[in-house]
Design a binder for these strands. Structure first.
Lengths: 233, 233
DNA sequence: ATAATAAATATTGTTAACAAAATTGCCGCA
DNA sequence: TGCGGCAATTTTGTTAACAATATTTATTAT
């Protein structure tokens, strides 16, 4: 992510950020049709840049692209959630293995800052900010591996991860899920604190376990909730 | 990959396949500028679809995209080669772990066919066909994991992998690299036979070792050769 | 001659119009 | 009423022209 309304130079990016935010923040219903001319009209630009953005979003998985028929907001199933969490976790562990669990001083600082952000956002109902903070935290783990292309792949999963955040949040608000007596925000803080602790002490094994716990728990929550209230599919 | 001139419906895809082939087959020099109007003229279509293709190629990593300045054929360094091989190998091992090393009957059949293709292509000087056969072989490994999104990520690395093939082939033709007395084609056959053998016997550990050997050896060859003749960067 | 500057050219970014395809709504008909 | 097919509409795919930016060439001053 790392949006922060910066560097929105060209129109394709304006459309891209707009649509991503709309989708991740839940202002567009899954399955909803995305009509190029409508979008370009609301953004006061032409269809070209909007098409660019939609193609990018299709690659990211936030949008389903049906040739000659247009785009729809992606319907995300519990399987999708499982896959995204599994993959992000796997890529992060892969990076950590490469770095031997060692995140440099700058990275640790960035993670501490991100964690502070997460804490300060607890209960603030600012999903996008939460997603960005989470992103910043985990990014440092991936970057520690020093593998550019690994980072790019991980980054490509970020928008979908953000969308899953929305689902998790919605579930959390319905909140029949047991969190050992903690709120969604508190659980998130606990998990990230554990990861940071492991990384700071350079304990690769524990860091991997902490990451697994974090992502698997998220997947679990979505899966369980899909059994109760019927999520998509 | 899986091209085979099928389903080239829309013009964006025509441009995409054309450019990918040109780059992977080495008909375009690394660093070379890709002028939209030139390409659209040679393909007898307008700039729009060409732009689409270039954006996709930039995501795949075959092309460097410089905003407001245009695209150039990517300069691939030994580090890039290492990263691509490392990532593809890691994703394949991840998939195999998920499937417990078990590839179903259809998958095995497809791998055997792909291996036959690789064998029949030895020394035929048809790089694209070689890449496609290799692709088919490894795809079955990734598919065994049953994780759609993992497969998509792996697929995204395919064009870059194809480009690396070209480099490997060129190095092989200069051939100061020791291959234990074997040609590049024979080495490739040996490695794939070992992988297939492991997968057929359901030996996850050995399959992972075989994959590592395959990809690490490739990376090694490129790295060593970069020390002798100065590759890009 | 060289460097700085300005004009000319080339190239990308964006738009609006056109073509092709899909969707919708209407009508007749059983 | 319900169903098939044709016309009207909508929407995507493509194009060509226009605008903005970058690059090259030419010009001038030192």
């Amino acid at each position: 992510m790392s949006n922060e309304d910066n560097s929105k130079k060209n129109f394709s990016d304006i459309a891209l950020w707009y649509l991503r935010e709309q989708i991740i923040d839940g202002h567009m219903q899954p399955g909803e049709k995305l009509i190029e001319s409508n979008i370009s009209e609301t953004l006061n630009l032409s269809r070209g840049p909007v098409r660019d953005a939609l193609k990018q979003l299709a690659i990211e998985g936030l949008v389903d692209y049906h040739p000659n028929k247009g785009c729809t907001v992606a319907l995300l199933s519990p399987k999708d959630a499982y896959e995204v969490f599994f993959l992000r976790g796997s890529l992060e562990k892969l990076a950590l293995e490469k770095s031997g669990g060692h995140v440099d001083a700058y990275g640790i600082l960035a993670m501490e800052n991100a964690l502070d952000e997460i804490k300060s956002l607890a209960g603030a109902d600012n999903l996008l900010a939460e997603v960005n903070a989470d992103e910043k935290f985990h990014a440092q783990i991936v970057l520690s591996g020093q593998i550019t292309r690994l980072y790019k792949m991980w980054e490509l999963l970020s928008p979908l991860n953000g969308a899953m955040f929305l689902t998790l949040k919605n579930i959390g608000e319905k909140a029949e899920i047991d969190n050992f007596g903690k709120s969604r925000g508190d659980r998130l803080i606990d998990q990230h604190e554990r990861i940071l602790r492991a990384v700071k002490s350079g304990d690769l094994e524990e860091a991997c376990r902490a990451l697994d716990a974090h992502y698997l728990r998220n997947g679990e929550i979505i899966y369980r909730s899909s059994l109760k209230n019927g999520l998509n599919k």
